[in-house]
Computed example of a mutant assay.
Amino acid sequence: MTDRAQALREAGRDIISLSVGEPDFATPPHVIEAAKQALDAGQTRYTPVTGTQRLKEAAALHFERDLGITTDPSRILVSAGGKQAIFEALCATVSAGDEVIVPLPWWVSYPQIIRYAGGTVVPLMTHPHHSYCFAPGDFEALITPRTQWLLLNSPGNPTGAVYSREMLLGIADVLRRHPQVMVMSDDIYAPLIYTGKPHHTLASLCPDLADRICTISGVSKSHAMTGFRIGVATGPDWLIEGMGRLQSNSTGNPSSISQAAAVAAFEGPQEFLGTWRERFLARRDRVVAAINAIPGLTTPVPDGAFYCFIDAQPLMERFKTDEALALHLLENGVAVVAASAFGGHSGFRISFAADDSALDEALHRIAGALA
């Protein structure tokens, strides 16, 4: 959808894109300065395959300060974005016939990576009236002897779902009864929570399960550094080693300049995040109110990230598919992503990581297109 929107722009059309999952804010100045200094210092050579020691130490600080996870730099892998770390963890462990339980709706790459590795995707259904969270009992009902992983994403893409402390403790009780199941905890959106409560992650709540949890984080969403392509992962020694072997024989080390910038991101000022959260929260409330005022559209209030996952079931008799609905909105000047891209149906996802005037105009166009 992003590519289609860009092509229409190049053809002279006025298109507002609410399809891309990246903050619209500028990368913090101290991060840009660190990248410049690295260039000026000639830091343009290979680094260790799994990241510099300097960045691993900064990432360890981040994991402890922001996620409550105490880890050693030796148990950290630096990758070219969080997606690469997820890919490596799954490809290092999943074989043909292995099952991976994934809450649905899911981020688009989860099922594709699992299938690439030869595994079987096991959907764990969630619903908007439960804020797209699931009951631990529903998770346990899907476990079989072939279950290898549970994938968690909180705050979630595309729904903005945030898993509570109580929910995570319930999941932990299930995991203790099924020792073969590992957990991928994708916490990339952790800084963007609007509940007023602290972020909770499984590895911090349940250190007895730490040798079965791989936690993914990074700087893309928290510091508006999507183009820098830096992710970080921590987990048991054997898994981090296996992920490193895959990285060594595929891409090699992440960008040296991006690693220097990520050190500044993790170790530098964090106060700007409070301002960003406030602005995202105001945008969220504006978008939710506007969407729920459009006949045929409804959305729950997302507790985190910067997405609304919108239900358009009453409009399906008119449009037949969510892809057709998304293309209709594109023809009316707004790029969104059809729900089917996330394993859903009868709706679409929008990102409210756009400036206020663009958001207001996009919402006006959506209302007009569906009137």
Rank of each mutant, 00 (worst) to 15 (best):
F63I: 15
R177K: 12
E64N: 12
L202N: 02
A260D: 02
C308E: 03
E166L: 02
D187W: 01
G68A: 11
V31P: 01
I188R: 04
I193M: 01
L330P: 13
M125Y: 12
A80N: 05
G343N: 06
A117Q: 05
S357V: 15
A262Q: 02
H30D: 12
D355F: 12
A7M: 01
H223K: 06
L169R: 09
S220A: 12
C214F: 07
R229P: 09
L205R: 00
G137S: 11
P28T: 13
M1S: 10
D3E: 14
M167L: 15
T275Q: 07
L209S: 05
I101M: 11
M184I: 15
L209F: 04
R146Q: 15
P48L: 10
M316L: 10
G304C: 07
A41I: 14
T93D: 11
M225E: 05
G137A: 10
P111C: 13
K320W: 03
R349V: 15
D211I: 04
V20S: 01
P207G: 06
Y163W: 05
A190W: 00
L169W: 03
E317A: 15
S185V: 07
I86Y: 02
G12Y: 00
L370V: 10
E140Y: 06
D24V: 08
S19A: 14
H364I: 13
I188D: 00
L363D: 03
P236S: 05
I32M: 03
L239K: 06
A371T: 08
C91H: 12
R9K: 13
A233C: 15
F319Q: 06
L90E: 01
E99Y: 03
V288Q: 08
P254Q: 08
E278L: 12
A341Y: 02
L370K: 01
I86S: 07
L169K: 06
G21V: 09
K221V: 10
R286P: 08
E331K: 10
G242E: 08
A260I: 09
T226I: 09
R283N: 13
G268C: 07
L169E: 08
F139T: 07
G68M: 09
I69P: 08
S95G: 11
G119H: 04
H130W: 14
A89V: 13
G343D: 03
N153A: 11
R65Y: 11
Y110K: 01
D66S: 14
L151K: 01
I76N: 04
S74C: 10
T299N: 04
G118M: 09
L124V: 10
Y46H: 15
E241F: 04
S185K: 02
V108H: 04
P158Q: 07
T70I: 13
F266D: 08
V121W: 00
L61N: 09
G21M: 02
